[in-house]
Computed example of a mutant assay.
Amino acid sequence: MRTQATLQKWGNSIALRLSGNLKSIPQFEEGDVVDIEVSEEGLQIRKAKGKKLTEAELISGLDAYTAHADEMAQPVSKELGY
Rank of each mutant, 00 (worst) to 15 (best):
M1Y: 11
M1W: 13
R2S: 12
T3Y: 06
Q4M: 04
Q4A: 13
L7D: 02
L7I: 15
L7M: 11
L7H: 01
L7K: 00
W10C: 14
G11L: 10
N12P: 09
N12D: 10
N12Y: 00
N12F: 07
S13A: 09
S13D: 10
I14H: 04
I14Y: 10
I14V: 15
A15T: 00
L16K: 02
N21Y: 03
S24P: 00
I25N: 05
P26I: 09
P26C: 05
G31L: 07
G31E: 02
D32C: 07
D35T: 05
I36S: 08
V38M: 08
S39H: 04
S39D: 12
E40H: 06
G42P: 04
L43F: 15
L43H: 08
L43T: 02
L43R: 07
Q44K: 13
I45Y: 01
I45H: 01
I45F: 03
R46A: 08
R46S: 15
R46V: 09
A48R: 14
K49T: 14
K49E: 14
K52T: 09
K52Y: 00
K52C: 02
L53H: 06
L53N: 06
T54D: 13
T54V: 10
A56L: 09
A56V: 06
E57R: 04
L58G: 09
S60H: 12
G61K: 02
L62R: 06
L62E: 04
D63R: 04
Y65G: 01
T66H: 12
T66N: 15
T66L: 08
D70W: 10
E71Q: 14
E71P: 00
E71G: 06
M72C: 11
Q74I: 14
Q74T: 09
Q74W: 11
Q74H: 10
P75T: 11
V76T: 11
S77C: 07
S77L: 14
S77E: 15
K78A: 12
E79I: 02
L80A: 05
L80M: 13
L80Y: 02
G81S: 04
G81H: 03
